[in-house]
Protein backbone atom coordinates (compact mmCIF):
# COMPACT_ATOMS: atom_id res chain seq x y z
CA UNK A 1 0.00 0.00 0.00
CA UNK A 2 2.68 2.42 1.05
CA UNK A 3 4.58 1.31 -2.00
CA UNK A 4 1.67 2.12 -4.25
CA UNK A 5 1.38 5.64 -2.79
CA UNK A 6 5.11 6.34 -2.98
CA UNK A 7 5.22 5.09 -6.51
CA UNK A 8 2.29 7.23 -7.66
CA UNK A 9 3.56 10.33 -5.88
CA UNK A 10 6.99 10.01 -7.44
CA UNK A 11 5.45 9.28 -10.80
CA UNK A 12 3.30 12.41 -10.52
CA UNK A 13 6.33 14.50 -9.57
CA UNK A 14 8.37 13.14 -12.44
CA UNK A 15 5.66 13.70 -15.02
CA UNK A 16 4.80 17.21 -13.83
CA UNK A 17 8.42 18.32 -13.69
CA UNK A 18 9.06 16.84 -17.09
CA UNK A 19 6.15 18.49 -18.76
CA UNK A 20 6.93 21.85 -17.17
CA UNK A 21 10.64 21.86 -17.86
CA UNK A 22 10.18 20.69 -21.43
CA UNK A 23 7.60 23.41 -21.97
CA UNK A 24 9.87 26.03 -20.41
CA UNK A 25 12.82 24.99 -22.54
CA UNK A 26 10.69 24.96 -25.67
CA UNK A 27 9.29 28.43 -24.90
CA UNK A 28 12.06 30.37 -26.68
CA UNK A 29 11.96 27.93 -29.58
CA UNK A 30 8.25 28.45 -30.14
CA UNK A 31 8.61 32.17 -29.68
CA UNK A 32 11.65 32.46 -31.88
CA UNK A 33 11.29 30.03 -34.74
CA UNK A 34 8.71 32.21 -36.50
CA UNK A 35 11.41 34.79 -37.18
CA UNK A 36 13.52 32.32 -39.11
CA UNK A 37 13.81 33.60 -42.64
CA UNK A 38 16.65 34.36 -45.02
CA UNK A 39 16.93 37.96 -43.83
CA UNK A 40 17.28 36.88 -40.23
CA UNK A 41 20.28 34.70 -41.03
CA UNK A 42 22.03 36.89 -43.56
CA UNK A 43 21.68 40.52 -42.48
CA UNK A 44 23.24 42.75 -39.89
CA UNK A 45 20.93 44.03 -37.18
CA UNK A 46 19.67 47.55 -37.77
CA UNK A 47 17.33 50.21 -36.35
CA UNK A 48 18.33 49.53 -32.74
CA UNK A 49 17.97 45.74 -33.09
CA UNK A 50 14.42 46.03 -34.36
CA UNK A 51 15.22 45.18 -37.99
CA UNK A 52 17.63 43.01 -39.91
CA UNK A 53 19.14 39.77 -38.63
CA UNK A 54 21.84 38.08 -36.63
CA UNK A 55 24.35 37.35 -39.37
CA UNK A 56 27.40 38.78 -37.55
CA UNK A 57 26.55 36.85 -34.38
CA UNK A 58 26.30 33.59 -36.31
CA UNK A 59 29.60 34.23 -38.05
CA UNK A 60 31.23 35.23 -34.76
CA UNK A 61 30.07 32.09 -33.00
CA UNK A 62 31.23 29.98 -35.92
CA UNK A 63 34.67 31.60 -35.97
CA UNK A 64 34.98 31.29 -32.23
CA UNK A 65 33.97 27.63 -32.21
CA UNK A 66 36.37 26.80 -35.05
CA UNK A 67 39.27 28.33 -33.16
CA UNK A 68 38.26 26.63 -29.92
CA UNK A 69 38.08 23.31 -31.77
CA UNK A 70 41.52 23.85 -33.29
CA UNK A 71 43.10 24.74 -29.95
CA UNK A 72 41.30 22.51 -27.50
CA UNK A 73 40.58 19.25 -29.29
CA UNK A 74 44.18 18.18 -29.98
CA UNK A 75 45.30 19.26 -26.53
CA UNK A 76 42.32 17.55 -24.90
CA UNK A 77 43.00 14.30 -26.76
CA UNK A 78 46.69 14.38 -25.83
CA UNK A 79 45.76 14.95 -22.18
CA UNK A 80 43.40 12.00 -22.40
CA UNK A 81 46.22 9.93 -23.90
CA UNK A 82 48.56 10.89 -21.10
CA UNK A 83 46.04 10.01 -18.40
CA UNK A 84 45.05 6.73 -19.94
CA UNK A 85 48.15 5.43 -21.72
CA UNK A 86 51.15 6.97 -20.01
CA UNK A 87 49.84 7.31 -16.54
CA UNK A 88 51.67 4.74 -14.57
CA UNK A 89 50.85 6.05 -11.13
CA UNK A 90 53.48 8.76 -11.07
CA UNK A 91 53.27 12.09 -9.33
CA UNK A 92 52.79 13.78 -12.70
CA UNK A 93 49.68 11.82 -13.60
CA UNK A 94 48.20 12.28 -10.14
CA UNK A 95 48.87 15.99 -10.42
CA UNK A 96 47.31 16.15 -13.87
CA UNK A 97 44.20 14.35 -12.66
CA UNK A 98 43.82 16.79 -9.76
CA UNK A 99 44.42 19.66 -12.16
CA UNK A 100 41.62 18.49 -14.41
CA UNK A 101 39.06 18.04 -11.62
CA UNK A 102 40.00 21.43 -10.21
CA UNK A 103 39.76 23.11 -13.59
CA UNK A 104 36.33 21.65 -14.34
CA UNK A 105 35.02 23.07 -11.06
CA UNK A 106 36.28 26.63 -11.57
CA UNK A 107 33.35 28.97 -12.37
CA UNK A 108 33.32 30.29 -15.91
CA UNK A 109 33.42 33.93 -14.78
CA UNK A 110 36.78 33.24 -13.11
CA UNK A 111 38.07 31.99 -16.46
CA UNK A 112 36.75 35.25 -17.84
CA UNK A 113 38.76 37.23 -15.30
CA UNK A 114 41.86 35.23 -16.09
CA UNK A 115 41.36 35.68 -19.81
CA UNK A 116 40.90 39.40 -19.35
CA UNK A 117 44.02 39.80 -17.24
CA UNK A 118 46.21 37.44 -19.22
CA UNK A 119 45.16 37.35 -22.87
CA UNK A 120 43.54 40.76 -23.24
CA UNK A 121 45.95 42.79 -21.14
CA UNK A 122 49.22 40.99 -20.42
CA UNK A 123 49.52 39.43 -23.88
CA UNK A 124 48.01 42.51 -25.48
CA UNK A 125 45.38 40.75 -27.58
CA UNK A 126 42.70 43.15 -26.36
CA UNK A 127 39.00 42.37 -26.39
CA UNK A 128 39.11 40.06 -29.32
CA UNK A 129 38.25 36.83 -31.06
CA UNK A 130 41.69 35.54 -30.13
CA UNK A 131 41.38 36.28 -26.40
CA UNK A 132 37.91 34.76 -26.26
CA UNK A 133 38.95 31.62 -28.12
CA UNK A 134 41.98 31.06 -25.89
CA UNK A 135 39.87 31.57 -22.78
CA UNK A 136 37.18 29.17 -23.94
CA UNK A 137 39.82 26.65 -25.03
CA UNK A 138 41.35 26.58 -21.56
CA UNK A 139 37.90 25.85 -20.17
CA UNK A 140 37.22 23.15 -22.71
CA UNK A 141 40.51 21.24 -22.54
CA UNK A 142 39.98 19.64 -19.10
CA UNK A 143 36.45 18.60 -20.02
CA UNK A 144 37.51 16.97 -23.29
CA UNK A 145 40.66 15.50 -21.72
CA UNK A 146 38.84 13.88 -18.82
CA UNK A 147 36.16 12.47 -21.04
CA UNK A 148 38.60 11.21 -23.69
CA UNK A 149 40.69 9.48 -21.03
CA UNK A 150 37.59 7.62 -19.84
CA UNK A 151 36.90 6.38 -23.34
CA UNK A 152 40.53 5.35 -23.89
CA UNK A 153 40.62 3.49 -20.59
CA UNK A 154 37.50 1.61 -21.60
CA UNK A 155 39.40 0.10 -24.54
CA UNK A 156 40.25 -3.50 -23.76
CA UNK A 157 43.86 -4.29 -22.96
CA UNK A 158 43.69 -7.11 -25.50
CA UNK A 159 44.01 -4.53 -28.23
CA UNK A 160 47.07 -2.85 -26.72
CA UNK A 161 48.71 -6.24 -26.33
CA UNK A 162 47.83 -7.25 -29.86
CA UNK A 163 49.52 -4.13 -31.19
CA UNK A 164 52.55 -4.48 -28.94
CA UNK A 165 52.91 -8.16 -29.75
CA UNK A 166 53.29 -7.36 -33.42
CA UNK A 167 56.05 -4.91 -32.68
CA UNK A 168 54.15 -1.63 -32.47
CA UNK A 169 55.95 0.96 -30.39
CA UNK A 170 54.23 3.22 -27.90
CA UNK A 171 53.07 5.75 -30.45
CA UNK A 172 51.66 3.11 -32.79
CA UNK A 173 49.93 1.35 -29.90
CA UNK A 174 48.38 4.62 -28.73
CA UNK A 175 47.12 5.40 -32.23
CA UNK A 176 45.51 1.97 -32.34
CA UNK A 177 43.75 2.63 -29.03
CA UNK A 178 42.63 6.04 -30.30
CA UNK A 179 41.26 4.40 -33.41
CA UNK A 180 39.31 1.92 -31.29
CA UNK A 181 37.87 4.75 -29.18
CA UNK A 182 37.20 7.13 -32.03
CA UNK A 183 33.43 7.35 -31.64
CA UNK A 184 33.87 8.06 -27.93
CA UNK A 185 36.45 10.72 -28.69
CA UNK A 186 34.13 12.24 -31.27
CA UNK A 187 31.29 12.50 -28.76
CA UNK A 188 33.58 13.96 -26.06
CA UNK A 189 34.65 16.57 -28.57
CA UNK A 190 31.10 17.38 -29.60
CA UNK A 191 29.94 17.70 -26.01
CA UNK A 192 32.94 19.87 -25.12
CA UNK A 193 32.32 22.18 -28.06
CA UNK A 194 28.60 22.21 -27.30
CA UNK A 195 29.37 23.45 -23.81
CA UNK A 196 31.77 26.07 -25.12
CA UNK A 197 29.16 27.19 -27.64
CA UNK A 198 26.74 28.07 -24.84
CA UNK A 199 29.29 29.80 -22.62
CA UNK A 200 28.54 33.47 -22.29
CA UNK A 201 30.22 35.12 -19.33
CA UNK A 202 33.84 34.49 -20.40
CA UNK A 203 33.19 35.83 -23.90
CA UNK A 204 31.36 38.80 -22.48
CA UNK A 205 34.51 39.71 -20.58
CA UNK A 206 37.18 38.83 -23.14
CA UNK A 207 35.93 39.19 -26.67
CA UNK A 208 32.41 40.40 -27.28
CA UNK A 209 30.91 43.56 -28.67
CA UNK A 210 27.17 44.04 -28.57
CA UNK A 211 26.93 45.67 -31.92
CA UNK A 212 29.16 45.51 -34.96
CA UNK A 213 28.74 46.89 -38.43
CA UNK A 214 31.55 44.78 -39.87
CA UNK A 215 32.62 41.21 -39.64
CA UNK A 216 35.92 40.72 -37.79
CA UNK A 217 38.85 40.90 -40.20
CA UNK A 218 41.68 40.08 -37.85
CA UNK A 219 42.07 37.72 -34.94
CA UNK A 220 42.41 40.75 -32.70
CA UNK A 221 39.04 42.20 -33.67
CA UNK A 222 36.16 41.82 -31.22
CA UNK A 223 33.18 39.72 -32.26
CA UNK A 224 29.45 39.39 -31.83
CA UNK A 225 28.32 35.91 -30.79
CA UNK A 226 24.91 34.32 -30.39
CA UNK A 227 24.93 34.00 -26.59
CA UNK A 228 26.26 37.49 -25.92
CA UNK A 229 23.80 38.84 -28.46
CA UNK A 230 20.91 37.30 -26.54
CA UNK A 231 22.21 38.83 -23.34
CA UNK A 232 22.71 42.23 -24.93
CA UNK A 233 19.27 42.36 -26.48
CA UNK A 234 17.44 41.20 -23.37
CA UNK A 235 19.23 43.50 -20.96
CA UNK A 236 20.06 46.60 -23.00
CA UNK A 237 17.27 47.05 -25.48
CA UNK A 238 13.58 47.82 -25.30
CA UNK A 239 10.83 45.32 -25.88
CA UNK A 240 10.59 45.75 -29.64
CA UNK A 241 14.06 44.21 -29.96
CA UNK A 242 13.22 41.05 -27.98
CA UNK A 243 12.17 39.15 -31.07
CA UNK A 244 15.81 39.03 -32.06
CA UNK A 245 16.74 37.43 -28.74
CA UNK A 246 13.98 34.86 -29.15
CA UNK A 247 15.19 34.05 -32.63
CA UNK A 248 18.81 33.71 -31.52
CA UNK A 249 17.81 31.58 -28.52
CA UNK A 250 15.72 29.33 -30.74
CA UNK A 251 18.68 28.86 -33.03
CA UNK A 252 20.99 28.05 -30.10
CA UNK A 253 18.59 25.55 -28.57
CA UNK A 254 18.15 23.83 -31.91
CA UNK A 255 21.90 23.61 -32.44
CA UNK A 256 22.51 22.27 -28.92
CA UNK A 257 19.72 19.72 -29.16
CA UNK A 258 21.12 18.66 -32.53
CA UNK A 259 24.59 18.17 -31.05
CA UNK A 260 23.28 16.13 -28.13
CA UNK A 261 21.09 14.06 -30.41
CA UNK A 262 24.07 13.27 -32.60
CA UNK A 263 26.01 12.20 -29.52
CA UNK A 264 23.16 9.97 -28.35
CA UNK A 265 22.85 8.51 -31.82
CA UNK A 266 26.58 7.76 -31.95
CA UNK A 267 26.39 6.12 -28.54
CA UNK A 268 23.42 3.98 -29.45
CA UNK A 269 24.99 2.93 -32.71
CA UNK A 270 28.31 1.94 -31.18
CA UNK A 271 26.84 -0.08 -28.32
Amino acid sequence: MADRIASSLLKLLTYIVFVISTAVILFPVFKGIRYFNPTFFTEFPSQGMTQGGIFPAIVGSLLLMSLVAVFSVPVGVLIGVFLSEYAKPTWLSALLRTTITTMTSIPSIVYGLFGLAFFCITMGFGTSLLSASFTLSIMTVPFVGGSVSNFLMAVSNDLREAAMAIGADKRETVFMVIRAAKTGILSSTLLGLGRAFGETAPILVTGAVFYATNLPRRLTDPIMTLPTHIYAVVTNFPEDAYWMAYGSAALMVIIIVAIYSIVQWIRRRSS
Binding site: V24, T200, Q264
Partner: peptide, 22 residues
Protein backbone atom coordinates in the same frame (compact mmCIF):
# COMPACT_ATOMS: atom_id res chain seq x y z
CA UNK B 1 14.02 10.47 -18.65
CA UNK B 2 17.61 9.68 -19.48
CA UNK B 3 17.70 11.14 -22.95
CA UNK B 4 15.49 14.15 -22.21
CA UNK B 5 17.51 15.19 -19.14
CA UNK B 6 20.63 14.87 -21.24
CA UNK B 7 19.22 17.00 -24.04
CA UNK B 8 17.97 19.67 -21.63
CA UNK B 9 21.17 19.71 -19.58
CA UNK B 10 22.96 21.18 -22.57
CA UNK B 11 20.74 24.25 -22.80
CA UNK B 12 22.99 27.31 -22.44
CA UNK B 13 22.54 29.35 -19.29
CA UNK B 14 21.97 32.53 -21.28
CA UNK B 15 18.88 30.93 -22.81
CA UNK B 16 17.62 30.05 -19.34
CA UNK B 17 18.39 33.66 -18.40
CA UNK B 18 16.23 34.81 -21.28
CA UNK B 19 13.44 32.54 -20.07
CA UNK B 20 13.87 34.03 -16.60
CA UNK B 21 13.60 37.56 -17.92
CA UNK B 22 10.82 37.15 -20.46
Amino acid sequence: VRSVTELISGIPSVVVGLIGVL
